[in-house]
Design a protein around this nucleic acid. Structure first.
Lengths: 233, 233
DNA sequence: CAGTGGTCTAGACCACAGG
DNA sequence: CTGTGGTCTAGACCACTGG
């Protein structure tokens, strides 16, 4: 039995994590309910709830009404990645950012694009290609399709000094999106732009953002050789 | 002015997001304080707090004591990746999982490993190499170093039928870790194991987990050609 | 049906940091 | 010093779901 009392939800959380970690509560175990824990910890049930909710969000507990709270058997690691604007990503590392527009025109997208964005196959979209550099060295190539029906203002924007990456964040709200990470080989074109050997392994991000039911934009970001994304667990 | 009253924090959250999205509250704007919003929404301040906290955690608001709450100017997109055990990752897709141990021995790690794990340079660690397959096709190669001082039981485990990936989750608790994602070219060795052309772009995960101040394990996972990780925004 | 987590409330005090 | 968010409390009712 514990004689110490816990004043705030963080200390309750710490104690709960300690018990899980020390195997006092083993994976799969049912732990006491909130009311009992509140009694034991000498605090309100609300406080216990807050702590347990936080631990559950982190993946170490499974909570179900009536069934109670159990220690997760498969602690699924959750890595939260912060996807920043490329400019600030570079500037935050103390490097100088520069930007160059490569191409900007209306075009009928390949089927892979129009189907991913759920637009009708033959309708032209705005296609923008641009290079982001750090200290003069190519950092990332941005290959983007924008639906002018969803973002009319984009048709009047040249993207000559401000990247679509940044402009859209400010002018085109979105409700949700999907993102995926992969590795791709540099095509000859990619190699020239990013100044790397053809066939190099490039870290790639694909992202589609939606505003309600309509796709706003689909972007493919090719990062320079050796780029990596980091996160804490 | 809004005449509707909001009963729960989710509906308050929805309303707040709507206002941000509709630009009623523009990026950088100071929004009313919790007490005022509670009055306007017809609910307790606690409820408003819960809603605003959730929106802030999602990155759309910046909150500071005394300074108040502002709409974030750089809505940093946060993608949460669920890193599951490879076996379940494969089985969840309806494929058959198989596992093959390639190598398991004690060895003095390269400096890159011992420094990342902060172990003394000359001390041997347990080195395990294994292949995970889906429906008989190579899926991921696991290249792992384990500190036997931190996980003594690992020295007595053969890893012949259960992967270190899975065994460690069950037997070696950790407090925190770092993870990074990158693209690397397949070496000749990698190419043979994963049955892909040498030089292929492979999606790679590097992870180090810690138990308090000591590194538990460092792993490099090389995924088959074309592998990608997905998340929602 | 009954036990558990989920949430709301009103009021209170506190911690922090801007002015 | 003072306004703002951060949190705690006691009590209450509700929603879900397992037995």
């Amino acid at each position: 039995m514990n004689t110490h009392t816990f004043r705030n939800w963080q200390s309750v959380q710490t104690e709960v994590l300690r018990r899980i970690h020390a195997r006092e509560w083993k994976p799969g175990d049912l732990i006491p309910n909130e009311a009992d824990l509140a009694l034991e910890f000498g605090c309100a049930r609300t406080t216990v709830n807050r702590a347990l909710r936080a631990v559950a969000e982190a993946g170490a507990l499974d909570r179900r009404r009536k069934a109670g709270t159990r220690v997760a058997t498969q602690p699924v690691a959750k890595a939260t990645l912060n996807i920043a604007v490329i400019r600030t990503e570079i500037e935050d590392r103390g490097q100088t950012y520069s930007y160059r527009l490569i191409t900007r025109h209306d075009a009928v997208p390949p089927l892979a694009i129009s189907s991913a964005m759920e637009t009708s196959a033959g309708r032209p979209l705005l296609h923008v290609g641009a290079l982001h550099s750090a200290d003069g060295t190519p950092y990332a190539f941005e290959d983007r399709w924008i639906d002018p029906n969803v973002v009319p203002a984009a048709s009047r924007e040249g993207f000559e000094t401000v990247s679509a990456n940044e402009w859209l964040l400010k002018h085109a709200p979105y409700t949700h999106g999907e993102i995926s990470f992969a590795a791709t080989s540099a095509t000859q074109e990619d190699a020239v732009l990013l100044q790397c050997p053809e066939g190099s392994a490039l870290f790639t991000i694909n992202r589609v953002t939606w505003d309600g039911g309509a796709a706003v934009t689909k972007v493919r970001l090719l990062f320079r050789l050796g780029h990596s994304m980091r996160a804490v667990l």
